[in-house]
């Protein structure tokens, strides 16, 4: 897994030269070496990062205009919705607005009955062996038949750090945000976290 290495690499990208140039722009004699400044900077950066991931809450980063489907929405409609909006998952809502479950691409694939699907090639391979499209088998199914339920959800005040570790531990890509009663308020995706932090993957 690469996850562990995705530490905030921004901090190490500042060079002694950058600091030297910055020091030249500050009038007066600065009683610190570029090396010491870099050390202070890196520690301060880590400190700020940990402060942010602990103080930023789900409500600060969630998408509130969230698409959802009902328990009795047909699977073909859901597939269309995912395709039209270029999303890979959608929460399923009960009549009373509470989150009943969540449907992701993975749920649809396993609903088809394809085992160990890891990529589109897995689907193609299974289709070829089966002499046809497997998706026909779930035509007419409803959301409640294939959704993952209960869905993993977080509250508005769940910290960013906790959401990030839920993503990693449960190996999921999005998590619905609910109030204490379970009503859908928004959704946080991996992309929302990446947008929030000045984080870049190491090459």
């Amino acid at each position: 897994m690469r996850e562990k290495e995705n530490k905030f690499s921004f901090e190490s990208e500042i060079s002694d030269e950058d600091i030297f140039e910055a020091m030249k722009n500050i009038p007066g004699y600065l009683d610190i070496t570029p090396g010491d400044f870099k050390e202070v900077y890196q520690m301060a950066y880590r400190h700020a990062m940990s402060r942010i991931v602990h103080s930023v809450k789900a409500k600060d980063i969630m998408t509130t205009k969230v698409l959802s489907v009902k328990e009795d929405t047909p699977v073909e409609e859901i597939a269309d919705l995912l395709a039209q909006n270029s999303i890979s998952g959608v929460p399923v809502i009960e009549e009373n607005g509470k989150v009943a479950g969540i449907i992701s691409e993975r749920d649809i694939l396993s609903g088809i009955g394809v085992k160990n699907i890891k990529s589109i090639m897995g689907v193609i391979s299974a289709c070829l062996k089966n002499n046809g499209c497997l998706a026909i088998s779930i035509c007419g199914h409803k959301a409640r038949d294939i959704m993952t339920s209960p869905a993993i959800t977080v509250l508005e005040d769940t910290a960013l750090s906790e959401i990030a570790s839920i993503f990693t531990e449960k190996n999921i890509n999005r998590v619905p945000v609910t109030d204490a009663e379970g009503h859908l308020l928004g959704i946080v995706s991996r992309a929302d976290i990446l947008r929030y932090l000045p984080v870049r993957d190491r090459p």
């Binding site: 002694d16 030297f20 020091m23 030249k24 009038p27 007066g28 004699y29 600065l30 610190i32 070496t33 570029p34 090396g35 010491d36 870099k38």
Partner: peptide
């Protein structure tokens, strides 16, 4: 040593 010496100050300084 690991780093360079700080820059020279301005004439005004």
């Amino acid at each position: 040593g690991t780093t360079k010496s700080p820059p020279m100050v301005s004439l005004e300084e």
